[in-house]
Nucleic acid binder design. Structure first.
Lengths: 193, 193
DNA sequence: GTCTATAAAGGGATAGAC
DNA sequence: GTCTATCCCTTTATAGAC
């Protein structure tokens, strides 16, 4: 109620999200979390019964905050090609700007058990991916829409996944990390082969 | 010299590689490693001064074992298009069959510091990626070869990165996890747009 | 809601016998 | 080259005062 500095669950989770995104579940201790939040470790157990629950709730909050953005990226348009163009640009900007989100998803896909993967599929990808396959069907009726949708995502996401190592690879230029440049490359590549 | 059951460094590293690949550096303890190897934790320190060194040497061994395969995938051919076709098929098979390798690289790109990334770039990607950009220049002289090479890699690798969650996504079929099917899809996509 | 204190377990690492 | 035993620190988690 008051404007004091005591932490709410949501505030704590917002602080925790970047920690787990950067170091993974096993790489972050309750003490580190407590220090980042500004309370003692024992106090965390007032808000969450254990570390696992804290982690899963952080995931849930991180994902729910961003799912809306994914849907905005699919803004409808009369022309499928125009919709596709906008989608690629939006996704590039999203993935480039929000590294925490991207890394959380990457880690979940790697480390999540069946239950958590199901959650991720339902909450984050679910309807977004479904709409993407619909768009794919409109763009290329002869192709498998599932494969094409994954291809588009991979084409975009991988360019930013490898950002940390990109500067060590031959032919690197600063512009290769620019979301607009990558978007234009991806669009032209998918259109003209 | 003898054929006893005492472990050599290389044998230990081969056992350790899948552990780090599956759970990451922080997710594996020296005791777990020892149990998998079949000795006590203290004995590990006869072979390696500390956990970090053990990890880095496991990486080095995993990468050196596989780098040759990457170069084989680039088997020269008179026709760049034919070379490209073979490269995609080889990479799909490699990434599909050797999940440990793929995951180690993924984790290193996420978590590696500058020094380790430099090592990864030099030892694994270095000349392979260079040759890929040369092939890209031959295939599409008008495109940025660095961007195109990354695109090809991303297109392939992402399809297998998301394997764990794929079955939860709309439109999934068993064939989507088949390396040949993915290879053909990628080739056709890059050729015809 | 946060604190101090502490339990119980597991972590990395070393010493010294065999 | 492997073992037992052990040190010391960190980890997760709980109890109870404020």
């Amino acid at each position: 109620m008051s404007a004091g500095k005591q932490k709410t669950k949501a505030e704590i989770l917002d602080i925790v999200i970047p920690l787990f995104a950067r170091s993974g579940y096993a790489g972050v201790s309750m003490r580190q979390i407590a220090r980042a939040v500004g309370i003692k470790a024992a106090s965390l157990y007032h808000h969450f019964p254990d570390k696992q629950t804290l982690y899963v709730q952080a995931l849930a909050q991180a994902f729910s905050r961003r799912t809306a953005l994914l849907h905005d990226a699919l803004a409808l348009s009369a022309d499928p090609e125009e919709q596709f163009r906008r989608l690629v640009h939006s996704l590039c900007r999203l993935v480039h700007d929000d590294t925490d989100f991207s890394r959380l998803i990457q880690r979940e896909i790697m480390d999540g058990d069946e239950k958590r993967l199901q959650l991720l599929a339902d909450n984050v990808f679910g309807s977004f991916f479904q709409e993407m396959t619909i768009l794919c069907r409109a763009l290329a009726p002869d192709r498998d829409p599932h494969l094409l949708a994954i291809s588009i995502l991979g084409l975009i996401i991988y360019h930013f996944q490898i950002t940390p190592i990109r500067s060590f690879l031959p032919g690197f230029q600063e512009s290769h990390n620019d979301p607009e440049a990558v978007a234009n490359h991806v669009i032209s590549l998918l259109k003209n082969g």
